[in-house]
């Protein structure tokens, strides 16, 4: 569904990505792992169109994304839940969700999606008028995911959803991700939390300082000794 092919991305003169590739097939949960500064967020941002690669290509459902403007890409079905959630702080939960369904594609399904989100996250339904800036980390993550769901996505990219969250909340988040996937959503999960990610993913890629170093079925990677040494010791 999503193919990232050898992308090179620069920040000014600093080379952030030096030929990263990955592929996500329909219905899968794919994890993109790596330590801080490896380039995971850069990769996701390039996929969603925030960044433009110097060379290489990003293809979604057969469409080359370089032809599209940033604000048109999510209507194709490729939706990102950004790192740090990036909610609109001065808007209420409800308004954030409304913004999620701004696009012409999502607006007709707005009520239907709202109902689905509130069913998935009942706590948000009670607090819908509360300003997004005043929520706890876990609640914000829920709103961010809900807001992304309002965009009628076909492939959901989550950038470090466990960041800054207590372990209990992290479990809830990952449970939600599995839930959504069971309903048919394809997932690309960017994470530093290697253990939990590999437990729910089908396949995974590992990148280091801007290029691929490892990939394979999640189960295999979980048992891989070198990976354990390098990453599981930290997490």
């Amino acid at each position: 569904m999503l193919t990232i092919n050898q992308i090179h991305v620069n920040y000014g003169s600093f080379q952030a990505l030096d030929g990263v590739s990955l592929q996500v097939n329909q219905g899968e949960i794919v994890a993109l792992l790596g330590s801080n500064g490896a380039g995971k967020t850069t990769t996701i941002n390039t996929a969603s169109g925030v960044l433009k690669p110097l060379t290489g290509s990003v293809t979604f459902k057969g469409e080359e994304l370089s032809r599209y403007k940033l604000h048109d890409i999510s209507t194709l079905g490729l939706v990102q839940v950004p790192e740090g959630r990036k909610l609109f702080p001065e808007m209420s939960i409800y308004e954030n969700l409304l913004i999620g369904s701004y696009s012409k594609k999502a607006r007709p399904k707005r009520q239907e999606n709202l109902d689905m989100c509130f069913e998935l996250f009942p706590k948000l339904a009670e607090r819908r008028k509360q300003a997004a800036g005043s929520l706890s980390g876990g609640e914000r993550q829920m709103v961010a995911i809900a807001r992304a769901l309002m965009q009628c996505p076909e492939l959901l990219m989550l950038d470090e959803p466990s960041l800054g969250l207590a372990p209990v909340i992290v479990d809830q988040v990952f449970e939600t991700i599995v839930n959504i996937n069971k309903r048919g959503m394809t997932i690309l999960l960017v994470e530093q939390n290697v253990q939990s990610s590999l437990e729910i993913a089908d396949r995974a890629y590992v990148i280091e300082t801007g290029h691929n170093v490892m990939e394979g079925a999640a189960g295999d990677l979980l048992r891989d000794e070198s990976l354990k040494a390098a990453y599981l010791g930290l997490s």
């Binding site: 604000h71 209507t75 609109f88 913004i99 696009s103 965009q151």
Partner: peptide, 16 residues
């Protein structure tokens, strides 16, 4: 309002 608070994220929400 969304664009004024966060231009990039607004664009991720299909806002031109």
């Amino acid at each position: 309002r969304a664009t004024s608070q966060d231009r990039i994220t607004a664009q991720l929400m299909s806002i031109n």
